[in-house]
Computed example of a mutant assay.
Amino acid sequence: ATGGTSVAITGSNFTGATAVKFGASNASSFTVTSATQITATAPSGSGTVDITVVTGGGTSATSANDKYTYIAAPTVSSLG
């Protein structure tokens, strides 16, 4: 939930990407490693969101394959 997770994104036509979004939030950072791969750092968030890539050609369509689920950090409730 606090973000910071590195995520490998595979697709096509990533050259010239200007943004990677996790839901409505921009990735903390991203690197286009090739026309078919981006490594992005998830921002903080909650729930399940779509990851989209923005280029000069537009924003990628959402699908069942682009979901990212935030998981809350564990908490300690007692010690025995």
Results as ranks from 00 to 15, higher is better:
S25M: 03
T52K: 09
N65D: 13
T5K: 11
S44E: 13
A27F: 02
T18V: 09
N65A: 15
T55N: 10
T75E: 11
T41L: 04
Y70D: 04
G11W: 04
A1I: 09
A35D: 15
I51F: 03
V49E: 00
A35E: 12
T48E: 03
A42N: 02
N65V: 09
S77H: 08
T18P: 00
A64E: 14
T33G: 03
K21I: 08
N13W: 10
T2M: 11
A61T: 15
S34M: 06
T33V: 14
L79T: 15
T62Q: 08
G3W: 05
N65I: 02
V76Y: 05
V53G: 05
N26R: 03
G47L: 12
I38Q: 01
T18A: 10
T10V: 13
I9A: 12
D66T: 09
S63N: 04
T55W: 12
G23A: 11
A73Y: 08
I38G: 00
N26T: 06
T41E: 01
N26Y: 03
G4F: 12
A64M: 12
T39H: 01
I38W: 00
D50F: 09
N13G: 12
F30M: 07
T62R: 03
N26Q: 10
D50S: 14
G11N: 10
T48D: 08
S29D: 07
T36G: 04
S78F: 09
A61G: 12
G80P: 07
G11I: 10
T48N: 07
S28I: 02
D66N: 15
G16S: 10
N65G: 05
S44K: 07
A35G: 13
T31C: 02
A42T: 04
K67H: 04
S44W: 07
N13I: 08
S44G: 13
F30W: 01
D50A: 13
K21P: 02
K21M: 12
A17V: 10
T33F: 02
D50I: 08
G3Y: 02
T31A: 15
F30P: 00
A8W: 02
I71D: 02
T18N: 03
N26M: 03
S60T: 15
I38L: 03
S6D: 11
T75I: 13
A35P: 05
I38D: 00
T2E: 14
A24M: 08
T10F: 06
S12C: 03
T41V: 15
